[in-house]
Design a protein around this nucleic acid. Structure first.
Lengths: 226, 226
DNA sequence: CTTGACAATATCGTATACTATTTGCAACGT
DNA sequence: ACGTTGCAAATAGTATACGATATTGTCAAG
């Protein structure tokens, strides 16, 4: 063919990595599902080599598991690991907030406030999770620690699935909103300790709700058939 | 070569990954150094494919940087990033300690105590860094959060180089020892808040010392010898 | 009808080979 | 003398090919 697919500057494995990552984080690729290299390769119109590189990166990130000579599967997060991740969130986000509060200026408060208003007016539960993330991130952003921010983003992205589960199923809008307002208020007053304490409680409550949600889900699957 | 013992079960990229990782963390491969795929491949007696996979994993881990069509280099940690990492350590280790204290039993205290004694008696500065790591880890281990522990280990490993620099150059034995004892004592009394507060100060002091050490080193314009 | 052995197939993992790009260097022109 | 252009060597990145291993299907024995 005369089609000269112009040589892209980036590696072919990058888009595959992004695509697989998005599919796993969104829950479209469910835990335990085998990831056939040939299939993924032909889907993207490449050979197995870039696919394998993408899978290796996902393995390092903990999203994929390689079994020797048996290929890769989507890594299944156990209940325990999800709760562990929330605990890590707790540590990282509280520290980020603590560092961020002294750096906050007026525009930070108004951005956060706008997100909360949009949050409140949003009817679609689908978007709550996204707005929730945006609110949290805009609080942490002034912390000045880029790597801390990216680690938080990584972990939150990873748990998007479970957060959505929780929000839709259990906690509704009221409780998180109240807590968000209280946290923002403490930030406004320039009280890091108070803001951090509120954030701690906020995340720990979330942890308990996720635990309950998982518990309920596994109970339901056990008593399935009634 | 002619050595064809048998087909190994694990991937060929795993040992390469381990070797490169160890070389980077130990400081033998210095930041900015280009990692030629052909060279590494022939050193290990394999083709470029497993080498590339190993490099991709190291890229995800942040130890290596790919420049499009120009190959990989050892990622250089800037002063800023090192200090950022210590801040993340602060968050993770304090949380781990907080979770661990209520779970500690007699044997945990005695193990920690033994390490401190060995620490004190150790003349070789080379091993201080290792003993320091072991002490910290044994305090966190009872926390019951495996992923938290592995993240801490990853970050500490990554900064081993700078810690060693600091220990040898700046802080000596006295100050850390005193703080270690105070922390252990708070753990013994079953006082998580106190232990965490002490740990915070301990790590923040370390952060300042590393900052000073880097400052001094860059002033002296380090010439690596080995 | 179940169970075990063996063949057929699918899939993984990597070496080889090839193309595209960057880089070093020399010849050339200003 | 200095910057520019063009060729040659080096290197990255990927497709193809192939051996090795796991999985599945088939058939005979119990």
């Amino acid at each position: 063919m005369a089609t000269r697919p112009r040589q892209q500057r980036a590696s072919l494995s990058d888009p595959i990595y992004e695509a697989l990552r998005a599919d796993i984080l969104s829950g479209r690729l469910v835990g335990g599902l085998p990831l056939r290299q040939d299939v993924i390769a032909s889907e993207h119109g490449v050979s197995k080599i870039p696919v394998r590189e993408a899978l290796r990166q996902l393995e390092t990130e903990g999203l994929v598991e390689f079994r020797p000579r048996r290929g890769a599967i989507v890594r299944q997060l156990t209940e325990r690991e999800v709760l562990e991740l929330i605990d890590i969130r707790l540590a990282l986000e509280c520290r980020a907030l603590e560092l961020a509060v002294p750096n906050m200026i007026e525009s930070d408060f108004s951005v956060a406030s706008d997100i909360l208003e949009e949050y409140e007016a949003e009817p679609s539960r689908e978007r709550w999770s996204d707005l929730n993330l945006r609110f949290h991130h805009c609080l942490y952003e002034p912390c000045g620690n880029l790597r801390l921010l990216s680690m938080i983003a990584e972990i939150e992205g990873r748990m998007g699935l479970f957060m959505r589960l929780k929000v839709t199923e259990a906690s509704g809008l009221e409780r998180p909103m109240r807590e968000h307002r209280a946290i923002l208020s403490a930030c406004r007053r320039g009280a890091p300790e108070e803001a951090v304490a509120l954030m701690r409680q906020h995340i720990q409550t979330t942890q308990k709700e996720v635990a309950a949600s998982i518990r309920r889900a596994s109970l339901r699957s056990v008593t399935e058939g009634s």
